[in-house]
Design a protein around this nucleic acid. Structure first.
Length: 440
RNA sequence: GAGGGUGUAGCUCAUCUGGUUAGAGCGCCAGGUUGUGGCCCUGGAGGUAGUGGGUUCGAUCCCCAUCACUCUCCCCA
């Protein structure tokens, strides 16, 4: 296809940047459906929608990504220096900006718990792949101020309802990460277990062993899996040494049971950063290849402090809209049809064409969804267009009708046509529009 | 960042081991009706074969590079 120009040929067309995508009119219904479904579920759970800026001070994401992490900070962020010589970064994840706003606007003063949701684009410089893009869109929620497992249950109930409303049922994977204290004790144990087998690990995992041994669990390499086969499980360690987290997990499980939400404990489900605590979960599809996580989240009781706020527990999730759409397509779902075009105006001759301009406006003012030809095509072509647009009715305006102050109204399905006064036609179309409007 | 696959009209694809003006279906436009759609018929527009090099008498077809897409590792949504 056409190529991005390399400076000299101004006539070549540009493409959207790698890993970004346009969403065209024929796909927008599906997107809207996902977004509106999410808004609807959030409304029922009494979450408040919010927007945050597309870019933030780089420091915000640098802090949540952790100084030690080579993941986000080094290469994966879209950072730029503005004319004020400060470094800014395009939203690299959903949670940090919300927490920043929570602190900045003192939402904690409005009550003990803040329940927030958002639908936003997220930018990361990654190698594009199926279900992984450089700009993707996330819908997510954050519950700030509640530490008990009820908040975890609320979060998972909302997530589950959302996915169910979309008609998809990915598997819920659940784990507990304990607290930074119990986790670091566990990491020591894990390191002791893996260190002797160092040579048998994959190259990646040998590095992980030094930086964050927990991450070895992420690996799909058979050698790593073998090394982990009889490694101690984080959850077992927590059960033995972290009674509070253990209790939290047990109660959450019983809530999920009461909510009829099936889940499987996944000992390989881990997170890299210190501010993650206890509950971690992912809804994973088996139809999406390597990027199967359709919704992921967990508890982050240490994050608000990390961002300079008072100790505040938090839990939330993010869900990739692109992946939700892929999953729905993979399971044969289609967005509800958009409301039909009620009327298409066909004009004959210059005079009628001119008269059509105000007539169209009158129809729109009457609430009628209608359209017309804009390139002066033949009547036949205009009729074809009306048919292509699946218009319920065609309005025909020519010199005869013009002279009589009437208009011809053709029912495209029944193929019947009658000539009637303009106002009568408008009234008729209004009724048709009403019948075809989605009942609310 | 590493590795594999792909790249021909708007879309989906042909073009048989490199050989004259690169084809089809769908879509689009127009005609078949002085003012009328869906079906049908006819005609038309639209491609320097992603791009740039190379090999060759000759390349859509072979080689190299580059770009894009795609899949996997990695990571996450």
């Amino acid at each position: 296809m056409s190529q991005p120009l390399s400076s000299s040929s101004p006539r070549q067309t540009l493409q959207s940047p790698r890993g970004t995508h346009d969403i065209l009119p024929d796909q927008i219904a599906e997107w809207r459906f996902v977004e509106e479904t999410f808004r609807g579920v959030c409304a029922r759970y009494n979450f408040g929608e919010m927007h945050t800026p597309l870019f933030e001070h780089t420091e915000l994401f640098a802090r949540t990504a952790g100084e030690s992490s080579d993941v986000l900070v080094t290469k994966q962020m879209y950072s730029f220096v503005a004319p004020d010589e400060q470094s800014y970064t395009l939203r690299a994840e959903g949670t940090a900006p919300v927490v920043r706003a929570y602190l900045q606007h003192h939402l904690e003063q409005q009550g003990p718990v803040a329940k927030l949701f958002y639908i936003v684009p997220v930018f990361r410089y990654e190698a594009p792949q199926a279900g992984r893009y450089r700009q993707h869109h996330q819908c997510g929620i954050e519950v700030l101020g509640a530490s008990g497992p009820e908040a975890d249950a609320e979060t998972l109930a909302l997530a589950s309802d959302f996915l169910r409303a979309l008609g998809i049922e990915p598997a819920l994977h659940l784990n507990s990460l304990g607290t930074p204290q119990s986790r670091s004790a566990y990491i020591r144990r894990l390191r002791e277990h893996l260190e002797p087998q160092r040579e048998t690990l994959s190259e990646d995992s040998q590095k992980r062993l030094d930086i964050n041994p927990l991450r070895v669990f992420d690996s799909k390499d058979e050698r790593d899996k073998a090394a982990l086969r009889d490694a101690p499980h984080l959850l077992d360690h927590i059960r033995e040494h972290d009674p509070e987290s253990s209790e939290h997990f047990a109660r959450l499980c019983s809530y999920l049971d009461a909510l009829n939400i099936a889940c499987e404990v996944d000992h390989n489900l881990v997170r890299g950063f210190d501010y993650y605590t206890r509950t971690a979960f992912e809804f994973v599809s088996d139809k999406l290849g390597a990027q199967g996580t359709v919704l992921g989240g967990g508890r982050y009781d240490g994050l608000v402090e990390e961002l300079g706020g008072p100790p505040t527990p938090g839990i939330g999730f993010g869900s990739g809209i692109e992946r939700l759409v892929l999953e729905r397509q993979a399971t044969g779902h289609e967005a509800p049809a958009t409301p039909p075009l009620i009327a298409f105006l066909v004009t004959m001759g210059d005079e009628a064409r001119a008269a059509g301009v105000p007539l169209l406006r009158q129809l729109r003012e009457a609430g009628i969804r209608c359209d017309s030809d804009f390139v002066g095509r033949s009547v036949k072509a205009q009729m074809r267009e009306a048919n292509r647009q699946a218009a319920r009715y065609t309005l025909l305006l020519g010199s005869d009708e013009l002279a009589q102050g009437t208009i011809a109204l053709k029912d495209m399905e029944a193929s019947t046509q009658e000539t009637l006064p303009r106002d009568a036609a408008v009234t008729r179309l209004q009724a048709a529009q009403h019948d075809n409007s989605p009942s609310r």
